[in-house]
Design a protein around this nucleic acid. Structure first.
Length: 914
RNA sequence: GGGCGAUUAGCUCAGUUGGUUAGAGCGCUCCCCUCACACGGGAGAGGUCAAAGGUUCAAGUCCUUUAUCGCCCACCA
């Protein structure tokens, strides 16, 4: 076994090796026949043609931590990987590529275009999964899925047909969101709103025929003034609406206006929808280009005139403006109106415009015929599932958001005018227009038998197939073994930004098709943001590339860093400092291991073998006793390890990754390295063989357990070091070992207390030394007084350690309290310690320091005395709190008394010496 | 227009059901290149918990108002 550990921790040297090993050995292949308990999780499928970004890194780190943790605790574990065809964004990428080559994708034709996309998918589709392998995600690669594969398609068609048969999917003419760049309709969710400063144009619509009189002034009037933010749509106006009770316009209802620029005559109608307060109280109605107008138009049976082309230009219906881009047309129309004297005024107006989530183009509301899914019916059980806790949502403040959205849910526009995606399984008869919706292409029309059928050219919204993901990936609609074993999945981890897009839809579709929740819990994590608080985005150049960071700092450090910052409910701002901190931690672990093996070599010269010090059976028996007891430092470190294990388990069970990370960090660095290793160093090389054996055995047992504790967070480093320890024959990986479980014999409250005393004592000595500027290499004599017997024994039997770590040449143990003279004394309620040293004390500074401490103590004591003296407090506060206060109060009184004494002495000495 | 969240050390953030002198990392100050680690060791400094009121024996934690910032949802042209 390779024993030498290189001096520096070089993550690149070890990570790739183990990543390959895990994949080759198919270490994480799930066995559906293995016994429960089950832990199953499906990946939020990343875009197949994408590459790993920092958001994935967070997702995947959290997923992998929990997966590894469960696996190590004996769960039958499945982490199912896969990718999404990501219809609109993938199509956009390929369209742009073609455009760069001077090719308009539409000229290629559908079939050829699809071929190109598949080719692109084959070329770049492996990037992200390859990266996932490299960062060692413990997936079952034999079960990898792709949303556009034939088996997923089968599930999609099945779902579509069933919903259609249940009349939950329907085809209708409706006002939808159109993206003139992506050339498709979008669902409401894909439209993002942004406040924009714009104008409100007040336009005069000349009254046609009989000119009315102003209701207020009685003056004859020629115009009706409407206010609009979108003058270019006026070419499609088919009415002007006023409120029926609006006195200003009452007499005009039923009359007509001549639509400027076109001369078309359109009616003035009355509708409750009109807000009398807004603008002029008269509103132009463009049913084909505004959702409100569309509704109103339906009520009043108005004509719908679409004045635009697919790519956002004015069409033939726009007359002379045809061919102009819509915002060019706006300018031109405003100019023309001005010239005609029909522009009454222009005011500033801020309003929200809808943008296409992908292209950031202003979305054009347009009436068109699309496929929709009725959501109300699906939403009910989905809300109920979360309501009754069948799905635990963490953090639970997201529940309200979820309910809110579900309560106000609107029908989902399913069809997309794209070529890349699941084609809608609907066929139209050329003879009679009859629609056949079927799982497979029908041979003939269901009503007339015609064979002249054409399939609907549209594809489904990507999120439709993603919505089936938790069960389609397990074989649905077939009743597979996987589905039976791993569904419902245990947990879903994803960002809260796709709560509605994805999570809500999976719950709805899952409940509907399987009758069960798709996952028992959903953890919605934070987003990784840039320093400025924005969401990281590669397109804006604000993203950090995790691949680069992984190389720079190591994947383990990256994982640890993300975990340590991933407090539920708050966003993460990643920084180089934090990453470096995590890298330093990895280095610390590395070097602790290095220390173990370097020293072991020296020790081995005495004839001991690694096997008898650190073999698996040897470790299992820890802790070892010396002279019939577990040495204090060893009992202490096992007790601390026990606490760490419990805290990590508790933290991970509640998705509190940052707690787990911090706890491990504190244990390994603060307890294990800073105190335990330092404490036992002499024992490891002790000539006293029993003593050395006990030290080595306990050390290895703790170290190996710590590696297992660390493994879910830092898989590579722990795997590497673990393999350098002797293991059971055939043991393949630390990932397949048990997560540490602390046996009761590891617990020791007394060791925690007694070793804690030693730590406080040593720290006090070091503190005096630092304050008095004693050369750190110079040993000095010290005297200590200990209040109680137990502590006395502890100090007495640990003289060596105290002297070594405190750089004390001679330790005298006094049987009475030490005089509180000078700056060389420190006291707590349990001990006094003093250093023999010729003092050169800065009296003023020392006095100020003591004064400040006294002040703090006085405040603390005062508040406790007040509370404890209060009968109401005593009657209402829990016993535990009262007792705790009393103990602390007693301690603080002693400390205060000693400190006051010291203060007095200090000033007296100074006084005398003058 | 609704809803949600944030405001704690110089910086970035923890602080679960109210309960004993409010924590971490980084940065800062002082000392140390001691034979695992300078990506290190030791000792420190630093906070009236955004403001004001309230509830309570007890408030960083609960309630109200205000200020600043952020996010989500929303068909006022």
């Amino acid at each position: 076994m390779a024993r030498e550990i290189p001096k520096g921790y070089e993550p690149q040297e070890i990570e790739l090796k183990w990543a390959e090993y895990w994949v080759e050995q198919a270490l994480f292949r799930a066995d559906a026949d293995a016994p429960p308990p089950i832990f199953s999780i499906v990946i939020p499928p990343p875009n197949v043609t994408g590459s790993l970004h920092i958001g994935h890194m967070l997702d995947h780190t959290e997923i992998d931590i929990l997966t590894r943790w469960h696996r190590m605790r004996g769960f039958n574990t499945l982490y199912l990987p896969g990718t999404d065809h990501a219809g609109i964004s993938t199509q956009r990428v390929v369209v742009r590529q073609l455009a760069d080559q001077g090719i308009d994708y539409r000229t290629l034709g559908r079939e050829e275009f699809e071929k190109r996309v598949w080719k692109w998918k084959e070329e770049s589709g492996g990037t992200i999964t390859e990266q996932m392998r490299q960062i060692g995600e413990s997936c079952d690669w034999s079960r990898e899925k792709f949303t556009l594969s034939p088996e997923m398609s089968r599930a999609v068609r099945e779902a579509f047909v069933r919903l259609y048969e249940e009349k939950l999917i329907y085809r209708a003419h409706y006002l939808t969101n159109w993206c003139p760049v992506c050339l498709t309709v979008l669902s409401d969710l894909e439209v993002v709103h942004e406040e924009r400063r714009g104008n409100l144009w007040h336009i005069r619509y000349p009254l046609a025929g009989a000119e009315g009189k102003s209701a207020q002034t009685g003056e004859p009037r020629k115009y009706l003034v409407v206010a609009t933010t979108r003058p270019e749509t006026m070419l499609g106006d088919t009415a002007v609406a006023v409120h029926p009770a609006d006195e200003r316009y009452k007499d005009l209802i039923g009359k007509n206006v001549a639509l400027p620029l076109t001369g078309r005559t359109i009616p003035i109608i009355a509708d409750e929808m009109v807000d009398r307060e807004f603008g002029t109280g008269a509103v132009k109605i463009t049913p084909a280009h505004d959702p409100n107008d569309f509704e109103l138009g339906r009520r009043h049976h108005l004509l719908e005139i679409d004045v635009m082309t697919d790519d956002g230009k004015m069409n033939a219906a726009a007359g002379v403006y045809a061919g102009l881009e819509r915002f060019e047309a706006r300018k031109k129309i405003v100019e023309d109106l001005k010239e005609l004297g029909l522009l009454e005024k222009v005011t500033e107006h801020t309003h929200a415009v809808g943008l296409c989530e992908r292209s950031r183009t202003i979305v054009e509301p347009r009436a068109s015929t699309q496929w929709f899914c009725k959501m109300k019916t699906l939403a009910e059980p989905a809300m109920a599932a979360v309501e009754r806790g069948a799905i635990r949502m963490v953090p639970d403040n997201r529940r309200e958001e979820y309910f809110n959205w579900m309560r106000n849910i609107r029908d989902w526009t399913l069809s997309r005018q794209l070529w890349w995606g699941h084609r809608i399984p609907a066929w139209y008869c050329a003879e009679n227009g009859h629609v056949t919706v079927a799982r497979e292409a029908p041979a003939a029309c269901g009503t007339c038998g015609s064979r002249n059928l054409t399939q609907d050219p549209d594809v489904l919204d990507t999120w439709f197939s993603s919505g089936l993901w938790p069960f389609s990936t397990l074989g649905w609609p077939a009743e597979t073994k996987d589905l039976k074993t791993y569904y419902p999945t245990s947990l879903l981890i994803t960002g809260y930004d796709i709560l509605f897009f994805w999570v809500a839809r999976m719950i709805m579709l899952g409940m509907h098709f399987t009758g069960e929740v798709p996952f028992r819990a959903v953890y919605l994590h934070s987003l990784v943001r840039t320093g400025g608080g924005e969401k990281m985005s590669k397109s804006k150049g604000t993203g950090l590339d995790p691949v680069v960071l992984n190389q720079q700092y190591g994947t383990d450090a990256m994982r640890f860093c993300l975990a340590s910052m991933a407090a539920p409910g708050t966003d993460i701002v990643l920084s180089d400092d934090r990453l470096a901190g995590a890298r330093n931690f990895a280095n610390k672990i590395w070097n602790a291991a290095r220390f173990l093996f370097l020293n072991l070599e020296k020790f081995e010269q005495g004839g001991a073998t690694l096997e008898e010090l650190a073999g698996p059976e040897v470790r299992a028996q820890a802790p070892y006793l010396l002279n019939g007891v577990v040495p204090l430092s060893d009992a202490w470190i096992f007790a601390r390890l026990t606490a760490a294990i419990e805290q990590v388990n508790e933290a991970l069970a509640n998705y509190r990754f940052h707690d787990a990370a911090q706890c491990i960090y504190q244990f390994f660095w603060g307890d294990f390295c800073d105190w335990y290793i330092e404490w036992i160093k002499p024992d490891l090389q002790s000539a006293h063989r029993d003593r050395a054996f006990v030290a080595w055995r306990n050390l290895f047992a703790v170290f190996e357990a710590a590696l297992r504790l660390l493994h879910p967070l830092m898989p590579f480093l722990t795997e590497e070091l673990w393999h350098r320890l002797p293991q059971k024959p055939g043991a393949k990986s630390i990932a397949l070992e048990r997560f540490p479980e602390a046996p009761d014999r590891w617990r020791s409250p007394s060791a925690l207390a007694e070793f804690g005393l030693l730590q406080a004592l040593i720290t006090a000595v070091r503190n005096i030394r630092a304050e008095m500027k004693i050369d750190s290499k110079k040993k000095v004599a010290a005297e200590v007084f200990v209040v109680d017997k137990i502590a006395g024994t502890t100090v007495e039997s640990n003289r060596d350690g105290i002297m070594r770590l405190g750089m004390v040449s001679d330790l005298k143990i006094s049987d009475k309290p030490l005089p509180q003279s000078g700056a060389a004394v420190r006291s707590t309620a349990r001990f006094d310690v003093r250093i023999d040293y010729t003092e050169t004390v800065d009296v003023a500074a020392e006095s100020a320091k003591i004064t400040k401490e006294l002040e703090g103590l006085r405040k603390a004591i005062g508040s406790k005395e007040r509370q404890l003296g209060d009968d109401i407090f005593r009657s209402r506060a829990p016993e535990k709190i009262i007792r705790g206060l009393e103990i602390t109060l007693a301690e603080q009184r002693i400390e205060m008394q000693k400190l006051a004494e010291r203060f007095e002495q200090l000033n007296q000495d100074t006084h005398n010496s003058r």
